[in-house]
């Protein structure tokens, strides 16, 4: 069993989960993920590793409630999870590339932190860029600011920082800075939009793909994506891929494969657990 050290909703619908997982904390590298199970009947849920502390043996993830399983995780009152598996996936190579931009949305605001930190330590100029609908939905700002040479906030309603989203802000940034590499972590749509901006300027861009997974060790092939015309398994070949060659349309469609079933069940369970 794996102990939950803390679980809290840090801003509306963004949850921070800190777990005791010394093995994983010792091995984790930027770009990797973990799989969690609440209990035997639960799904195997993949989450981006957003931080870890090898000394204290802890790992941190951020997640949003988007369906039945994440709702369960939010409402889970137990002290332990039945499984925490990782670190999985290929670490993203860290080197001195020059100026590195990291853009985060949703859970990716937490997810970009390990890469930003490692890139900073490797001597890069690090620019981080995060987005939210409104100022009250921003999180992880302090941590990111610490590891960034430049830290930019974008809100859709303009209540803090620049008005717009990461893909709006990056437009100006490209004019101001000479960017050697860009990394985006967030929902599929956000990553695709960001790529559309960077690729016209030939900026080498990486994204952390988020297809549906089951085992997470390359055994089932559920998470296959087309990258550069080849089928890749996000769990072992990724999750971070060079973005310009990703078949986004396929990813959207595969990710929606169970949406109908899940929408019905999610509603049913929400009502049930709220006593409706």
């Amino acid at each position: 069993m794996y102990k939950i050290l803390s679980k809290s909703e840090i801003v509306p619908n963004v949850h921070k989960l800190v777990l005791e997982a010394p093995d994983i904390a010792e091995k984790a590298k930027p770009g990797q993920f973990v799989i969690l199970m609440i209990d035997e009947t639960g799904e195997r849920l993949p989450f981006t590793l957003s931080d870890w502390d090898a000394k204290n043996g802890t790992i941190t993830i951020y997640f949003l409630e988007v369906g039945l399983s994440t709702m369960d995780l939010v409402r889970f009152k137990g002290e332990e999870l039945s499984a925490v598996i990782g670190p999985l996936g290929k670490p993203t190579p860290i080197d001195k590339f020059g100026t590195v931009v990291l853009g985060g949305g949703c859970y990716g605001v937490g997810g970009i932190y390990p890469i930003a930190k490692a890139m900073k330590e490797a001597g890069n100029t690090v620019i981080t860029l995060i987005e939210a609908r409104s100022s009250y939905l921003l999180y992880n700002e302090e941590g990111l600011r610490r590891v960034s040479d430049r830290f930019i906030v974008a809100t859709e309603d303009g209540t803090k920082g620049e008005k717009g989203k990461v893909h709006d802000v990056i437009e100006n940034l490209i004019q101001e800075e000479s960017i050697d590499r860009a990394y985006f972590i967030g929902c599929t749509f956000m990553m695709m939009n960001c790529l559309n901006k960077t690729k016209t300027h030939d900026i080498t861009t990486f994204v952390a793909l988020n297809p549906i997974m089951v085992d997470g060790t390359g055994m089932c092939g559920c998470c296959r994506c087309s990258v550069d015309g080849k089928t890749k398994f996000a769990c072992v070949d990724g999750p971070i891929f060079e973005a310009k060659e990703v078949d986004w349309d396929q990813l959207f469609k595969r990710n929606a494969a169970y949406s109908q079933q899940e929408a019905i069940i999610y509603q049913f369970h929400s009502c049930e657990s709220e006593g409706v």
């Binding site: 055994m219 089932c220 092939g221 559920c222 296959r224 089928t231 396929q250 469609k253």
Partner: peptide, 21 residues
């Protein structure tokens, strides 16, 4: 534990599974 696919067009459509999955 590495599923084989046929490498034919359309293999990454939804509702196409490896037997492993």
């Amino acid at each position: 534990g590495l599923p084989r696919f046929m490498r034919i067009e359309g293999e990454n459509l939804s509702n196409v599974y490896s037997a492993n999955e």
